[in-house]
Design a protein around this nucleic acid. Sequence first.
RNA 1: GCCCCGGUAGCUAAGCCCGGUUAUAGCAGCGGCCUCGUAAGCCGCAGGUCGCGGGUUCAAAUCCCGCCCGGGGCUCCA
Length: 624
Amino acid sequence: MKILQLHSDFIEYQPIEREIASAEECERKPCRLEELVVLFVSVEKGDTIQTGRKAIDDVKVFLNRIKANRILIYPYAHLSGDLASSYEALEILKDMESYAKGLGIETYRAPFGWCKAFTISVKGHPLAEQFRSIQLREEKEVVSEALKAEEKIRSDWYIMDLDGRLIPVEDYDFTNHENLRKFAHYEISKMRAVQQTPPHVNLMRRLELVDYEPASDPGNFRWYPKGRLIKSLMEQFVTEKVIAYGGMEVETPIMYDLEHPALASYLHRFPARQYILRSDDKEFFLRFSACFGQFLILRGTQISYRQLPLRIYELTRYSFRREKSGELSGLRRLRAFTMPDVHAICADLEQAKEEMLRRFQLSIETLEGFGLNREDYELVIRFTKDFYEENKGFIALLVRKFGKPALIEVWNKQFFYFVLKWEFNFIDNLDKASALSTDQIDTENAGRYGICYIDEKGERRVPLILHCSPSGAIERDLYAMLEKAYMDQKRGKPPMLPLWLSPTQVRVIPVADRFFQEAEKIAKEISKHNIRVDWDDRPMTMQKKIREAEMEWIPYIIVVGQRELESGVLSVRDRRISGAEMGGEIRRMHLKDLISEIKERVRDKPFKPLSLPMRLSRRPRFYG
RNA sequence: GCCCCGGUAGCUAAGCCCGGUUAUAGCAGCGGCCUCGUAAGCCGCAGGUCGCGGGUUCAAAUCCCGCCCGGGGCUCCA
C-alpha cells in the first residue's frame, strides 16, 4: 500500500465521471473539508485488511504529533503500478474508514472508482508532506535468477554501419532506414498506443488457415487444412535446409522432471514461466525449447575434436512458454509454438565464429524461402562489452554480410548464459518488432550439462554451444508473411503467399455447367505434375467464382469456356500481374507452358498435395 | 498479472447509454429460378442458451456483481 499523506488547510474535490463500472454510488457535488490530513491511497496487490489497519495505526501516531484529528481517505491509483483489484481495494478502504472511526479519528472517505477534480492547500511545515509504503511482511515472490539478473542489467545502444563504426543510437541519422528506426525505438523505449487487432489475425481466420481454440489454454491454436498444409510445408522446408547444412535430426520428449538436477539450474536462467504437469506425485514442466532434450543426449555422447563442429537438430512441435496472458497476440506470440532448434558444439571461439557465419547465411536463406527478404527485417546484435573488445572484426563482418546497418546492444557484463546473440526482427503494421531467426554463443551450458569432447591430446574439453533457430517460430514466420502481404495490399500490390506455399496453386473455373467436364480434365492433367490444383463446380456465376478465387489469393486462375475449347489456348489470370482490384491483363498460354512455369518457380521447394477435395462443392467452410 | 475496449445466427455487425410486443441486417448455408466470358445474378427458406453464472426489477441483450474468451495498453519477450 502506498500513501501520500498531506497535512492541509483544506481540500475541495468533486466526482466528475465514473472511471470503472464498479464505482461507488455518490453525489456529484463538490465537497470541502478543512484542517485535515489527506491520505492519497493506492491499494496494491497483496494488501489485506491488516495492511490498511497498520496504515491507520501509523497515521494515528502522526496525528497525535501534529495535534490534528481529521482525515480524508482519498482513493488514488496513481501511486503504484501494482494495484489490487478494484473489489479488494474498496473492501480495504472501507475497512480503513471504519477502523479509523473506531480509533476516534474524524474520518471522511472520497468515493472510489471516480475521476475526481480536486484543489488542495498543503501546509508548509516540515512534516506536512510524507510518502509511506506499508507492507506487512516481505512478500515471497518466486522470481527466477534470470529475472533478477535482468533487473540489474545495463545496456548501451548503438547502430553499427557497414564500415563497422559504432554510432550511439541518438546520434544516428535514420534517413532511408525507417524500419531500423522503428525497431530501435521499439527495443529501447515504450511503444505508442494503438488499439487495433493486428491485421494478420483477421487474415489467418478469413483465409481459413488458423484460429483460436477457446477450449484450450490461450495461445494454443487450431489449424485448418489450408493452414496445416502451409505450416507443414514450412516445417519440411526448414528441416531440409538444416539437414543440408549438416544437422542431425533427433526427437526428444516434450516434458521433463522439474527436480532433475541437470535441469533445475538451467530453468533458473530463463525468465519464462512454464506449464507444469503432474503425473503421480511428480511434477514435470513442458519444454520451452529443444535445448533440454539435445543437451541430455549430448552429455552421454562420446565426441572427438575430429567431429566438431557437431550439429544436432530438432523441430519442436511444440515448445511451450506460458507467456503472461496480456502478452499473447495472434500468431506473433503464442504459448505453444513450433520451432526449429539447431545446436552446434564447437571446440573453441574461433570455430564458433566460423560456424556462426555459416548459420547466419542459413537463416537468411531460410527466410528467403518464405518470401521474407532483407528489406523485410532488421538485424540486432547483442553482446558483452568484453566480447566486443576482443572480437570487433567479427561483429563488423556480420553486419557487412547482412548488408544493412544493424542495431547493437552492449551489456556491461554477462547476465545470460551467452556472450553474443543476434536476431532478425520483423517490424509489423503496428510497428511492433518480433524476433525471427536467432543464434547465440553459449558459454555456460556445456559445463552445466556435462557435455565435453576429447581433444588432440586425449584430454577432456568443455566446448562452446551455439543455439540457432534459423527461422524462429514457424507460426511467427507465417505472421510475418501475412503482415507483409497486408503491407503490400496497402501499397496497392496484390497480397499473396509464395507460390510453393499457396494451398491452391491453380484454380480452374468453367464459365458454365456445360464446361465442367473440360475443367475437370484440365485440373486432373495439371495435378499429375505435383501441382495443387482444384476446380470450381459450384452452381454460381463465373464472376463470383473469380472473385472468391482472388480473395483466396490463388496465384493462377484458369477460366475455361467455348473459346479455350476451340483454340486449345488457356486464359490465365496471373495474380502477380492482374492486380488485386479489377482484372488486369489475362495471359494466353498453353497448358504445358503453364505447368513448366510453375515447376520452375517452385523448384527446390517441398511439395504436398491438396489438403482439401479437388472439387470446391465438396469442401466445408471452416470459418465465415 | 493489472488497466481499458469488445463478445448478439456459422461469419461481420446494428440494437445496450435512456429496461417494455415476435431481437435487426449483410455475407455464408439450404431450396428454386438463371447457363452466364474475367472481383458479388434473382427469389424464397431456415438459422439465436444475446459469452457464462448470479443479482436488481412486474419485466433484462439492455442496469449491477463475479467469471470465461478475444483485442489493445502497461509489463515482459530465452
